[in-house]
Write a protein that binds this DNA or RNA. Structure first.
Lengths: 134, 134
DNA sequence: TTATTAAAGGATAATAATTATCTTTTAAGC
DNA sequence: GCTTAAAAGATAATTATTATCCTTTAATAA
């Protein structure tokens, strides 16, 4: 989906900086604030870290993006999609998404616990295919 | 399991501070460093925050405890057990464990992705039974 | 278009969380 | 009881994040 529309639908003003952030997230998938800062500086020489934090927080509040936190890693952000699994390779430090449907798991958990569950943060970590053979 | 043995088995020196930390984790389940600090000060008036951070890190390295990170929360720690689900209530901010076996999920994820998976951090959040009716 | 205005951006200070450093104390093995 | 390496405690340093304040800009309506 077009980033401009995405912003408008979430009641966020369209700015070049925000379009840049979304574009990076679309290309890279999972990004942290520092990565974002370094990449954004190439397009917006004078961008401030504060702007990135403010925008990330605004997009989180409007549920346009989600935060993924995992042991030993800085918070990562990605554009919202269906509940899914994040795979993390401890060797190359890459995050990727795995599209296994988590509905069943969430439903089971909900029934067993009587919780009304809304969000998931599922990170499985280990070694990716490449790093296993090193 | 007895905390003294637990420490020895993980090649960690037995100290009163460490026994205190484990005791608190056993009683409370999920704790963060600040909680730990406040609670420990009652037993060890002069305990230093640095001691807590150092011990938590040492126990993490030796895999005696694990770290649970979730959006909007400070890192929580608990004694290692089988892979399981953490439920988080956004209203009362309580973490609890749910014993649903995650083996199948992890195996599926492993097969689909060819990752060699070792660790899981699974947090589902929403409203607990009590907080739904408020 | 242009004028208006609330919101966003940028610079930087302040705060919070965590790690590093150094000295003193203590657990573990002889 | 000694000895010694590791742990504790105090505190400085670092890192991550938020707050503040002033300037600039996107959205809207004349």
């Amino acid at each position: 989906m077009n980033s401009e529309l995405l912003l408008r639908e979430h009641d966020l003003k369209v700015t070049p900086q925000r379009l840049g952030i979304l574009s990076l997230m679309k290309i890279r998938g999972h990004v942290d604030v520092e990565e974002l800062f370094l990449a954004m500086k190439k397009q917006f020489a004078s961008i401030s870290l504060a702007t990135l934090y403010k925008n990330v927080n605004a997009m989180l509040e409007k549920q346009l993006i989600t935060e993924i936190k995992a042991p030993n890693f800085k918070a990562k952000y990605e554009i919202v999609k269906e509940p899914h699994i994040h795979l993390l390779c401890k060797e190359c430090n890459e995050f990727v998404d795995l599209d296994i449907n988590l509905e069943t798991l969430i439903d089971d958990a909900s029934k067993k616990s009587n919780y009304q569950l809304e969000e998931s943060c599922v990170v499985l970590s280990g070694l990716c295919e490449k790093c296993q053979t090193k």
